[in-house]
Design a protein around this nucleic acid. Structure first.
Lengths: 270, 270
DNA sequence: AAACCGAGTTTCAAATAATGGAACTCATAT
DNA sequence: ATATGAGTTCCATTATTTGAAACTCGGTTT
């Protein structure tokens, strides 16, 4: 597996390594990292050392494994407050969840992935970080498609290329073309569905949170299961959800949330 | 204001900048950063560019400000799961909070600061990220002192130097010497108090979570206010809290949590 | 016991990237 | 019109990164 972001000199490469450890999702040995890295042993070794010294990774000497460092938790606290919609959206997400009585997700785009920044669970009460910070595929989730639908072609193109199009269920859209026509439909309606595309029995409606310039800065979704709800049933909730997305869009504009394409648009690969 | 971490080459310097943005706690202009940085303009500029390209910072073109990037939220999700005590401590924190009916904090040490990784609020139900990821001073919080009390002198010394000893209240310990003798007392008892040292009217008991080697890998505290509780009242809860810390220590040992000094011990500055 | 192995670590000259003083742009203030 | 200041680019100098190879050190095989 080759590196994906490459650019940005030494810092970029080091952060690549960090991403890779995160992607593993469990503590990893040095050799495991070496295997799917294109860096030579000594180079990778120094990166890992540096990151560990910096607290971005933590090292377990007993098991000789590296895990994501605790410093990230501290940094992310500020990030979540400053750069996610969650803090300003909170009251509206709360109200929506209370009204619809189903699970509500608030998501944003990060790179080509969906990043969940907040959640209200219908069943279990609290879930904390276990939901916020989680990532999911953009091409087969309601929130993902709702946001993709409002991207400009220049940005959308590369993102569509990066999707895995893994067939999670028999309903998963597995080609860029199929996805493209779905996105057109979503743009037309102003909302989209997840028709058991990611998980069997799980359906959702998603509505983008749009700026005045029609950029999707995030999306809200209401999720349910086929044995409790139907797509038609979810569709009836759209006006209520739009109320919430509108409210969030307004607050975000007033609060001066940037009206840019994506929070992680490459400026220049130098 | 000079740089603090310095070492670790370019990556270290770039992460320094990241920390500085986080420390500001609000979106900052380039010039503001330049002011309290020792890097020349062009150098700092490139760091900020790189970090922005990498999604570690986000740039608001309208206001020309930099904020912490959304990528951090994604990375921190994994970090919180892997390197914090929160996931494994969760059931015990839940049970403790339910039993004592007061606010419970779970904290770890990050650098010379207290990092809160989980919390159960007595009053309000959910609080999410607004608590996890938060940092606080080590020298004047219950959890901070409880953990400091079990550090080896070699590590404790430098950390004591780094404390600000800001007098938050009239009870704040404002010298390393006063703190040292307090730490001795805590080590003797196995638990410590916050006697309105950080905030007037707020008191707490804290118990360290110790490994077999007597290293504090974290701490639990029960917090209350002087108009509802007394120190003596809180002290009665110690056995129940110790039950929880013991349980967490056990699970953490079984799950192979590293028995090291601190999760962010400098290995070598090159 | 000696040889071997593989994971992790260190070395060092060559290659590359970072550095920062200065010059430039562009909007806004005087 | 001119000055100021924030933000950005340039480029020769300098320092850091790079990575092949050699080394260390448990543990395993012959």
């Amino acid at each position: 597996m080759a590196e994906r972001s490459a650019g940005d000199g030494t810092v970029g490469k080091a952060l690549d390594v960090l991403d890779r450890v995160a992607a593993m999702g469990r503590p990893v040995r040095f050799t495991e990292l070496l295997e799917d890295s294109s860096y030579p042993k000594a180079t990778l070794y120094r990166f890992v050392q540096t990151l560990t010294n910096q607290g971005m990774l933590s090292y377990d000497p007993e098991r000789q494994t590296y895990a994501m460092g605790i410093r990230l938790v501290r940094l992310a606290h500020t990030a979540w407050q400053q750069s996610s919609l969650a803090p300003i959206a909170r009251p509206h997400v709360d109200a929506l969840a209370a009204d619809v009585g189903e699970t509500v997700h608030l998501a944003q785009l990060d790179n080509a992935q969906v990043l969940y920044v907040d959640k209200r669970n219908a069943m279990r009460p609290i879930e904390m970080y276990s939901s916020a910070g989680k990532v999911g595929p953009a091409y087969c989730t309601g929130v993902g498609k709702a946001m993709l639908a409002y991207l400009d072609e220049a940005i959308l193109g590369p993102i569509l290329e990066q999707q895995s199009y893994h067939r999670f269920t028999e309903h998963t859209l597995t080609t860029a073309e199929a996805l493209r026509s779905e996105l057109r439909a979503i743009r037309q309606n102003g909302y989209g569905f997840d028709r058991e595309e990611h998980e069997p029995g799980i359906i959702c409606v998603a509505v983008p949170i749009l700026t005045a310039g029609n950029r999707a800065i995030g999306a809200l979704s209401v999720t349910s299961s086929t044995d409790r709800q139907t797509l038609a049933g979810l569709e009836k909730l759209v006006p209520r959800i739009q109320e919430a997305t509108q409210a969030i869009a307004n607050v975000s504009r007033d609060w001066g949330f940037p009206d840019q394409q994506s929070s992680n648009t490459k400026v220049e690969t130098n």
